[in-house]
Design a protein around this nucleic acid. Sequence first.
DNA 1: AGAAGAACCTGGTAGC
DNA 2: TGCTACCAGGTTCTTC
Length: 275
Amino acid sequence: MPELPEVETIRCCLAPKVTGQVVGKVRVKRGSRLLRDTVSGPALVRALIGRKIEAVGRRGKYLIFTLSSGDFLVIHLGMTGLIYAAAKTEPSPDHTHFRLELTDCSLILSDPRTFGRILYVESGKLAAHPALARLGPEPLDPAFNPAWLESRLAGRTAPIKALLLGQGLVAGIGNIYADEACFRARVLPFRPAGELSPLEIRALVKAIKAVIGKSIECRGTTIRDYQWDMGQSGDFGRRLKVYGREGKTCPRCQDKVNRMMVGGRSTFFCRGCQS
DNA sequence: AGAAGAACCTGGTAGC
DNA sequence: TGCTACCAGGTTCTTC
């Protein structure tokens, strides 16, 4: 399930391979659910053909391809989306929704569970697009700091984890890194967000920056599906302290790792050293 | 406006 | 072996 570190790793892998390449053919799976929020398949094809890919960027969990027309192709991988550059002779895997034939390679997007999305955004309208406009600051940006977080948590009664998953306080955190950041900050994920002390908020900001930064260095976390290139898995999984470790020993206090549902998601934490 | 829960989707797996 | 039931989770939608 690609969260920010995974998407960033994919971006870094993809950028040198597709930047400067020109779109020849475009193949879109007929009736693909990934296009549910976009122009029609044929309109997308028309908009892409002949355009050069000028840059590959990222905002939160969204990959952003800047086209020579000034428009943007924006891709969200959902839970099970895979995107990679392959040899033009490489066959499309099952569940391929989208394939760009570029100058020297093919850009392939597959997604069995179809939680992903393909957006086409016109020049100058990127920041205002509803999907992107609601995003909070990037976790590694100085704009994401204790003062900002404190101002946004005041009076909120929802669990802190639910708010972290909402993308509005900080962009790019998903289920895995929300749990890991709460663990590092010694904060229980189901705590009402408005009740966190300034000290805890500071610890949480620090923990989020550390966990995201470290995971990017490790090329992300592979639980099941995620690959940053054909056959390449992320290495951060072995550094997870609580996620997916129900019943195992807490690496910090030797208590048992617990699991419960928070914000509708499986949540892992340690009662021994989080409060 | 905020909170909570359902809905979307299908491969994998636990249980029988 | 084969069947059913449920779970995984990012985002959007609906309801309160």
